[in-house]
């Protein structure tokens, strides 16, 4: 319950405070958000599978975000930032789809 409330609180805060994204963070924020979403869906699936671990979630969340940002950063340095961020989004998207499919099977048995 608390994590869901925290998520909603974060959304509300973001909408209310309406901060501007620092220019240096602008290429990484969308990728980081997608990576974090992937971690969250993975956590929900693990919870449903009964193998959820708080520490694993925290580590996977942080490392997901950091790795995604690092990959994009490296891509920018190498001149293939656009393509690499597309690749990261595709991979994470596939993972999110897989996780949601597993969640769906758990919840609806279908």
């Amino acid at each position: 319950m608390i994590p869901a409330v925290a998520l909603v609180m974060g959304v509300v805060l973001g909408l209310v405070l309406h901060p501007t994204v620092p220019a240096g963070l602008q290429p990484y924020l969308p990728i980081a958000v997608v990576a974090a979403l992937d971690a969250v869906f993975g956590a929900i699936r693990a919870q449903l599978d009964g193998i959820f671990d708080d520490r694993v979630f925290v580590v996977s969340f942080v490392s997901n975000v950091l790795v995604a940002a690092l990959v994009v950063f490296l891509g920018d340095q190498l001149g293939v930032g656009g393509q690499l961020s597309t690749g990261v989004v595709v991979v994470l998207g596939i993972r999110i789809f897989t996780n949601t499919a597993a969640i769906r099977r758990h919840l609806f048995h279908a």
């Binding site: 608390i2 994590p3 869901a4 409330v5 925290a6 998520l7 909603v8 609180m9 974060g10 959304v11 509300v12 805060l13 973001g14 909408l15 309406h18 901060p19 994204v21 924020l29 969308p30 980081a32 958000v33 974090a36 979403l37 969250v40 708080d54 979630f57 925290v58 969340f61 942080v62």
Partner: peptide, 16 residues
């Protein structure tokens, strides 16, 4: 920590 991370995610999501 989990709650904080999720709050951060929501915040970043909304901002983005």
């Amino acid at each position: 920590l989990v709650a904080a991370l999720l709050a951060l995610l929501g915040f970043a999501l909304a901002v983005q």
